[in-house]
Structures are given as C-alpha cells and as structure tokens.
Amino acid sequence: MTTLPFRAGRGVPPLRDQVAGELRSRIADGRVAPGERLYEKAIADELGVSRLPVREAIRMLQSEGLVSVQPRRGVLVRRLNRQAVQDLFDVREALEVLAARLAAERADQAALRRLEELVEVGRRALDDGDDQAIAASNTAFHDSIYQLAGNALIPEVLDPLMGRLHWLFRQNVEPERVFLEHQELYRALAAHDPEQAADVALQHIRSSRRMVLEMLKD
C-alpha cells in the first residue's frame, strides 16, 4: 500500500484527526469490514506515522461507537445490528427533519446553489453508475442539510454519530430512489416551504430505514 501524505505542522489538523478521518472513511465505505481487527503498528507503518496518533485515533473511533476494544482480541470494527440501526434512524427522524424545516426557512441563495450543485453531482454519479461517487454525494448532501439549518447545536449533537451516519448513508441499494428524493427535498428547500421540506425529509428517512433493515436480513 502507498503511504498517504499525513503530516504535522501549522495549518493542518493534528495527526490523530487525520488518521481518525482516514479510518472513518475506510469503515464507512467498506474497505475495512465489520468485525475486522485493526492493528496499530500496521496502520502506523502504512500511513507513515508513529503509533501514538494511531492509538489516539482509535480512542476517538471507540468513543464514536465505530470500534470496540476487547480483551485478547484487540481493536475490532463494530458490527451495527438491527437495533443500532433503528436507533440511528430514530435520531435522524428527530434531527434531520428539524434541519430540513429550518433550512427551508433560513438557507440563502448562495447556500441553495451549493446544494443544487451537490444534487447535480449525484445525478452524474447515478448516470455513470459510479457507486463510490453515489455514496460520497449522498453523504455530502445530508451533511449539507445539517449545515443549512443554521442551528449550531444540530451538527454539534450529531458530531459523535457522524462516523456511523456516514456508514448508514453508504448503505444504498436503491440509488435512483434516493437521488429522486434528494431532488424533491432540494426543491422544497429552494421554495422555502418548511412544511413540505419536513414532510419530504421524513418520508426519505423512512424509505431509507426500510431499505437498510431489508439489507440487514441478508
């Protein structure tokens, strides 16, 4: 594997944050599978860092619920069972619907243009059949809704859950349905219709809940 350009210095995030971000990404997109063991030394060697930032990054992921540290087994990527997924969707229903309602009330034209660009990125990814790009655009779209709400507490409350939420956003076997619902939600936001935005967001989350729970049956 190629050593990644992880570095320390002014103007860049601490190494622990860079390593944690890389590991989150690998867990979210499936490069590191549920149940897989993480080895500090192997990660440190691959990323070209010492073991200390890797150890600190693993502690961060443990606090976020992405990994568990087990006696005699080491660090394992957590498997999200049906109840854990249900709990995540419950949180999404509470906060993402609120975020959509607030975004419809507060988002300015510049922010809406950026969201429209994300919708177009999603369309191109769908047309190209690029699963990685579809997953990335889905994640970016939802992250943007949290920011457009203009309520600093929403992303703050969700921050410890973002790794698990990003994993959730990538569980997508109905990409066309997901894209069309994103498009519908964008239109409600652009129309500054908070009730419609909240309703579309709620239906989108419930459709995705059904989809992911069906996937977990396999």
Score class of each variant (00 low, 15 high):
33 A>P: 01
34 P>V: 07
34 P>I: 13
34 P>A: 05
34 P>H: 11
34 P>G: 11
34 P>R: 03
35 G>C: 04
35 G>I: 08
36 E>G: 09
36 E>R: 12
36 E>Y: 01
37 R>M: 13
37 R>P: 01
37 R>Y: 07
37 R>D: 03
38 L>F: 11
38 L>Q: 04
38 L>H: 07
38 L>M: 01
38 L>D: 05
39 Y>S: 06
39 Y>D: 14
39 Y>G: 05
39 Y>R: 10
40 E>C: 11
40 E>Y: 13
41 K>I: 12
41 K>N: 07
41 K>F: 09
41 K>G: 07
41 K>Y: 12
42 A>D: 13
43 I>L: 13
43 I>T: 00
43 I>V: 08
44 A>E: 14
45 D>P: 10
45 D>E: 15
45 D>G: 08
45 D>H: 13
45 D>S: 14
46 E>D: 15
46 E>I: 03
46 E>M: 03
46 E>W: 02
47 L>D: 05
48 G>L: 06
48 G>P: 07
48 G>N: 11
48 G>V: 09
48 G>Y: 03
49 V>C: 01
50 S>M: 12
50 S>Q: 13
51 R>N: 11
52 L>S: 09
52 L>C: 03
52 L>D: 13
53 P>S: 09
54 V>T: 06
54 V>P: 03
54 V>L: 02
54 V>S: 02
54 V>M: 04
55 R>S: 13
55 R>G: 05
55 R>I: 09
55 R>F: 11
55 R>W: 14
56 E>T: 03
57 A>S: 10
58 I>P: 00
58 I>M: 09
58 I>V: 15
59 R>H: 10
59 R>A: 15
59 R>P: 02
59 R>L: 14
59 R>M: 05
59 R>N: 10
59 R>Q: 12
59 R>S: 12
59 R>I: 08
60 M>N: 07
60 M>Y: 03
60 M>Q: 15
60 M>F: 04
60 M>L: 15
61 L>D: 01
61 L>Q: 06
61 L>T: 00
62 Q>G: 08
62 Q>I: 08
62 Q>M: 11
62 Q>P: 00
63 S>P: 02
63 S>E: 12
63 S>K: 15
63 S>H: 10
64 E>L: 00
65 G>Y: 10
65 G>C: 09
65 G>R: 06
65 G>S: 05
66 L>A: 06
66 L>H: 02
66 L>K: 03
66 L>T: 00
66 L>D: 02
67 V>P: 01
67 V>K: 10
67 V>E: 01
67 V>L: 02
67 V>F: 12
67 V>M: 08
67 V>C: 05
68 S>M: 14
68 S>A: 14
68 S>H: 05
69 V>I: 15
69 V>P: 06
69 V>C: 02
70 Q>N: 09
70 Q>D: 10
71 P>D: 15
71 P>F: 15
72 R>P: 04
73 R>P: 01
73 R>F: 02
73 R>G: 02
74 G>T: 14
75 V>P: 12
75 V>F: 15
76 L>D: 06
76 L>N: 04
76 L>T: 09
76 L>W: 08
76 L>F: 08
77 V>M: 00
77 V>Y: 04
77 V>I: 12
78 R>H: 04
78 R>I: 03
78 R>F: 05
78 R>K: 12
